[in-house]
């Protein structure tokens, strides 16, 4: 490649330094070189101006349909099964019965262990957290997030008053969870009342809830 050709290429790519521009301009005084430069410049302009081919209108949908299903390992499934929060629907009688059993357990336990006071558990493993959103006119709202592997069809909010105030209470372990509301299976809504937000990497914000480890207090003789 001659020096002229090299400078020509640099000029077309707009990569020449001021000194090289001067050198190039000097070389262009030669008529043959100028003609060659003009031909290349014209060809480059034609190529740059070529009409762009647009992909088919269904291009994005087809790409998405070709993406492979995400497969997770057995241990992953087990982990999710054990730790993913679930909504449990109980009737009042069952809830009262369970509360009674839980309340009585320490007393019963005490009887078996020589009257020794049973220390309370060092911390509670879950905290009940209430998710709520105002969405008058919405038919179905689910909350999805880190706590349920972002599955959209698992945790639905109830509109108890029928006035568009949807809510659900979930037991969450201490941690930091990003979450979103999915309205009618189509619109992703960020919780406007969240205490924190996190960029989701796609230009939107996820709401974030932080569940602190509850502070436990022990009686002075609980050592």
């Amino acid at each position: 490649m001659t020096r002229f050709e090299e400078l020509l290429e640099g000029h077309l790519a707009n990569e020449l330094s001021p000194e090289e521009q001067t050198e190039f301009a000097a070389l262009l005084r030669d008529e043959e070189r100028r003609r060659l430069f003009e031909v290349h410049q014209r060809t480059a302009a034609l190529l740059t101006g070529l009409t762009r081919h647009a992909p088919s209108p269904t291009f994005t949908e087809e790409v998405l349909s070709r993406l492979p299903e995400q497969t997770s390992s057995l241990s992953g499934h087990l982990w999710t099964l054990l730790w993913a929060p679930r909504v449990i629907r109980w009737n009042l009688a069952s809830a009262l019965a369970l509360s009674f059993v839980l309340a009585m357990t320490p007393a019963v336990w005490r009887k078996f262990v020589d009257g020794t006071a049973v220390a309370p558990p060092p911390y509670h493993v879950v905290t009940l957290f209430r998710f709520s959103v105002e969405a008058p006119g919405a038919q179905r709202i689910s909350v999805v997030g880190d706590f349920n592997g972002w599955r959209t069809d698992e945790i639905f909010l109830s509109d108890i008053t029928g006035q568009g105030h949807f809510a659900v209470t979930l037991p969450l372990r201490p941690g930091r969870y990003a979450y979103m509301f999915l309205v009618d299976g189509a619109a992703w809504v960020t919780d406007p009342h969240a205490t924190a937000y996190r960029d989701d990497g796609f230009g939107n914000r996820n709401a974030v809830v932080t569940i602190e480890t509850p502070q436990t207090s022990r009686a002075p003789n609980d050592t």
Partner: peptide
């Protein structure tokens, strides 16, 4: 990217297919 493929293989219809493959490959990799 679609236009790049189109210019390389010369067929806009087939470019759709190849560009889609490329996106999937990028996702997987």
């Amino acid at each position: 990217m679609h236009d790049l493929v189109c210019r390389m293989i010369g067929d806009p219809m087939e470019a759709d297919d190849i560009a889609q493959e490329a996106f999937v490959k990028a996702y997987v990799s």
